[in-house]
């Protein structure tokens, strides 16, 4: 925490983990998006991977329309998984340290072969049930947090801005209701 003066205590309460890890992470997410766009002209979103990968196993026309992009979407997703694994092997494991990173206290840390890994405490039924709705909603709604949120907002698309406002508002309401029902974590 770098904020110290008294008038900023209210701000500290709103940002208990500071903002640097969020901002740096966001800049990198944007950079990854721009690298792909600069090289290929493609605005890559993450959720199309779900349908393009289903085209390997299903003949349904909704999945087959993504046959041309399914190979590189698999490569993109593999990159995301391995980029996060590189983070686990470096910053999360304490091999690389930076004052911009605030480790926080969520979930459980565990070690495998000297690498510090992380696991969630959120219950599997929430992940599975919520995941089903994420799968339906992102594909029906034409995009997710990256397709609408990063690429769409970045290109000032009105459709994407409406999409983001919709899922953000509904998610805040839903999480508030779930918490009020006493479900934790």
């Amino acid at each position: 925490m770098t904020l110290e003066s008294v008038p900023l205590q209210g701000v500290e309460a709103l940002f208990p983990n500071g903002i640097s890890r969020y901002a740096v992470g966001g800049l990198l997410v944007g950079l990854g998006t721009v690298v792909i766009y600069a090289a290929t002209g493609i605005s890559a979103g993450a959720s199309t991977f779900l349908e393009s990968t289903l085209s390997y196993v299903s003949d349904q026309s909704r999945f087959q329309q993504y046959v041309a992009s399914r190979d590189w979407r698999l490569v993109f997703t593999a990159g995301i998984v391995l980029g996060a694994a590189a983070f686990a092997a470096t910053v999360q494991s304490g091999v690389v340290t930076t004052s911009l990173y605030q480790p926080g206290s969520t979930g459980e840390l565990y070690e495998v072969a000297g690498v510090t890994l992380w696991s969630t405490d959120v219950q599997p039924w929430r992940l599975f049930g919520g995941g089903i709705l994420v799968g339906i909603g992102t594909r029906l709604g034409k995009g997710c947090t990256s397709g609408h949120g990063v690429c769409g907002v970045g290109s000032a698309s009105k459709t994407s801005i409406v999409g983001v406002v919709t899922f953000l508002t509904v998610a805040i309401g839903t999480a508030t209701v779930v918490a009020a029902l006493g479900v934790t974590p």
Binding site: G25, G26, L28, L31, A39, A44, L82, G83, A84, A88
Partner: peptide
């Protein structure tokens, strides 16, 4: 691009 994107999401 995916590597940078994933590292950022994790960070």
């Amino acid at each position: 691009g995916g590597l940078i994107f994933g590292f950022g999401l994790a960070f």
